[in-house]
């Protein structure tokens, strides 16, 4: 009853969460970049979550030798699975929950509930969105003859603006909202972003593929036309047998056979 009484008299409600220094946040952020360092088939990202949270958990009463710290580290290093970039949302929220003294069973339920949404949103937004989009834009740059260093910089700048931005946003929103962070996943960028990126990527793919092939093939227009037509035919075949044949393995076999003939004849 203390807090409402204080609020009635106009005094600010005390925040039970300890302050976390900027240096601690830098340390947590750098560790999130290595969150998959011990990825395995049993605890998946679990140890990485404990590793990333560890600098923040040192703020718990008693420090690294205290029971609160040990209990929190044990809890946070258990099984966890999500997209590695969006795990920063969980890291921020879990740091707030642990430092605010939220009951352990509530934290464990929250951890379990976050896995699915953070995995599916991240997969669609990053692996099936930002990554192919950045690759294809860089391939357009390659196709129109941009210098090698600039091609690499375009790719890395485009991709990592999204990548690092997402990680920083995740930590901030997680820390700010704590256990109520699920609402942040309804952010329009996360909800509608994948569809917009998919359309943009489709358009960019249409431009990038012929331009890339043209630059690789060189000046022969006839060979370029043949390469594009044969490529289109094989692509249709690959789409039709979707899931049964992996494209890169098919290319490996085709190119190996071509090399064999070239060497043997």
């Amino acid at each position: 009853m203390t807090a409402p009484a204080a609020a009635t008299h106009g005094a600010p409600t005390p925040d039970p969460t300890p302050r976390v220094s900027a240096m601690t946040w830098v340390s947590v952020f750098v560790r999130t970049l290595a969150i998959q360092g011990s990825w395995n088939y049993e605890t998946l990202l679990g140890n990485g979550v404990g590793f990333a949270l560890e600098p923040a958990l040192r703020r718990l009463p008693g420090g690294v030798r205290g029971d609160a710290f040990k209990a929190a580290i044990a809890r946070e290093s258990a099984y966890f699975n999500a997209h590695p970039y969006l795990t920063s949302v969980a890291i921020g929220a879990l740091a707030k929950a642990e430092l605010s003294g939220v009951p352990p069973e509530r934290i464990e339920r929250f951890r379990t509930a976050l896995c699915g949404p953070l995995g599916s949103v991240g997969d669609r937004l990053v692996w099936a969105g930002l990554l192919p989009f950045s690759s294809l834009v860089a391939l357009i740059a390659f196709g129109i003859g941009v210098r090698p260093l600039a091609v690499l910089l375009i790719f890395l700048a485009l991709y990592n603006t999204g990548h690092l931005g997402l990680r920083i946003w995740g930590l901030r929103v997680g820390w700010t909202r704590g256990l109520a962070v699920a609402g942040a996943l309804a952010n329009p960028v996360l909800r509608n972003g994948p569809a917009y990126i998919a359309r943009a990527s489709a358009a960019v793919a249409g431009i990038a593929i012929p331009l890339t092939v043209a630059r690789v093939v060189g000046p022969s227009r006839l060979l370029l036309e043949d390469a594009l037509v044969v490529g289109a035919v094989i692509a249709v075949g690959l789409v039709r047998v979707h899931g049964r044949v992996e494209g890169w393995k098919l290319v490996l076999v085709l190119i190996a056979l071509f090399a064999l003939v070239s060497v043997a004849r």
């Binding site: 593929i209 390469a227 594009l228 094989i234 692509a235």
Partner: peptide, 14 residues
């Protein structure tokens, strides 16, 4: 180059 790029483009389009 055309054979290699053509095969790669097939994978990309698919």
């Amino acid at each position: 180059r055309a054979v290699t790029a053509g095969a790669a483009s097939a994978v990309a389009a698919a």
